[in-house]
């Protein structure tokens, strides 16, 4: 009987620790499909964050490194600079990437570091039990914004793709979502493009994935998907924010755009 659907080889066959309805599993899967399709598992080194995906090193079958909170881009830089022929990716959440690791994120991008960053934006700290993230929406209730995020008190959300697309070193900045089949297909295409960029040495690529957190949002999985569609996508519009097909170092005049 012809096999039409199977687990990607680079995704290890063990139960994950993610909550029911969490979209990490979808992103893990499409990332591993890309790794399989490109045949690069043996030449790929992944870097995990601190957050819900802290233990992703147990799920990806390539070599993995667990970084300190926010430091995955620096760790990935150390790996890539000493192993330029390998594929290097980080997998980071919003607190890791856009709060404690903002400096590492901005500088890995402006250096045009030839790596891929998969950025999971679910507007909340999941692992620690639902506190405000840098991407938490205005008025969103979390454990540390019990009356809703008031920008006057807690500032505004960080729009990561918009911010990083201003940097010359960024080759690809694209925001996708995993709320529907067409969007998931789009997300996988973006991840593939990011890895192709790395293969071609085009520079820094980030794919921001709008994701859900049913547990900490206090919503059933389907309601969580609905919130992503109704509240998150309007605030964080999907699309390609930057796509430098010729590579960021092809025009060395520099200067941030």
């Amino acid at each position: 009987m012809a096999v039409v659907f199977e687990r990607p080889k680079s995704l290890i066959d063990i139960p994950t620790h993610y909550c029911p309805g969490c979209t990490h599993g979808i992103v893990h899967r499409i990332l591993c499909e890309v790794i399989d399709e490109m045949g690069i598992e043996g030449d790929t080194i992944g870097v995990c964050p601190v957050g819900c995906s802290v233990m992703a090193y147990d799920y990806f079958n390539c070599d993995m490194i667990e970084a300190a909170h926010g430091r995955a881009p620096a760790v990935a830089t150390g790996v890539k600079r000493t192993n330029p022929d390998k594929f290097v990716f980080t997998y980071q959440g919003d607190g890791d990437l856009a709060a404690i690791g903002t400096a590492e994120t901005v500088h890995v991008a402006t250096r045009g570091e030839n790596i891929v960053v998969i950025f999971i934006n679910n507007t909340i700290y999941g692992m620690t039990g639902g506190q405000m993230a840098p991407t938490t929406l205005p008025d969103q209730v979390t454990q540390t914004t019990p009356f809703g995020r008031d920008p006057k008190l807690a500032g505004f959300p960080v729009k990561v793709c918009e911010m990083l697309s201003t940097l010359t070193g960024t080759a690809l900045a694209q925001r996708v979502a995993v709320d529907s089949v067409p969007h998931i297909r789009e997300a996988k295409k973006a991840i593939r493009k990011a890895f192709e960029n790395q293969k071609a040495g085009r520079g820094f690529s980030i794919v921001e994935v709008l994701s859900t957190c049913p547990t900490n949002w206090g919503l059933a999985p389907l309601d969580a998907i609905k919130r992503l569609q109704d509240e998150m996508i309007p605030y964080y519009p999907l699309g390609v924010y930057k796509d430098v097909t010729e590579g960021v170092f092809d025009n060395l005049k520099g200067g941030n755009e």
Binding site: A67, R71, A74, V75, T77, G78, V79, T82, N83, E104
Partner: peptide, 9 residues
């Protein structure tokens, strides 16, 4: 942390 990354390899 870059040292950590390089040393890891």
């Amino acid at each position: 942390n870059m040292v950590l990354g390089a040393a890891s390899t």
